[in-house]
Amino acid sequence: MIDKFVPSLADAMAGIQDGATVLAAGFGPGTPATLMRGLAEQGARDLTIVMNAGGRDEGPIADLLSTGLVGKLICSFVRADSVAGRQFAKGQLELEIVPQGTLAERIRAAGAGVRGFYTPTAADTILAEGRETRMINGRLCLLEYPIFGDVALIDAWQADRFGNLTHRDSARNFNPIMAMAAKMTIVQTAHVVELGAIQPEHVHTAGVFVQRVLHVPV
């Protein structure tokens, strides 16, 4: 019998190695806050975190950065006045700033097996300095590579034992694409449902992209 549910947060986070690249979903809603706390408790070091934004002084990403377990953050947006901004200014955190759409597409590319793509986004900005560009049909484009995760931390509204997921409202955001882009996709779900309760055409993230599911009631 296929059953991807795990009984505890420690079981959900077991085996994450030092140096892992961890994709963390969320744009406000849709942030897997419990799993991010679990990552800090699990204790793997020298992590690379891939997340849309660097957060503020508290909250899931700020709290994780405050543990000192994260060496690099790949994101689209960092405030100077935040844990991430201050760690970067002190040389404690490496930052890779990626335009938000490019970030999403690099993650999608990883999940889809696409090994690179050209985009006009940022091609004529300082983010392209020293990198490969090319004119395509008269438009300057920048070569971008996929972002693969060793682990993805995912938030869901509903999950069944196959790992089929729904995401509520705008909490969907990065969750479906990050789930596809990692070797080990770990989900926290608000609700557990019977197999078949989610209509096949209403599945947002198919269970084949999911390895572990933890029930975290809201």
């Binding site: 689209s76 947006f77 960092v78 405030r79 100077a80 901004g85 335009p99 938000q100 490019t102 986004t121």
Partner: peptide
Amino acid sequence: PTKQVGGAMD
């Protein structure tokens, strides 16, 4: 240290 690119470039 403020790097607020977000989605503007796309």
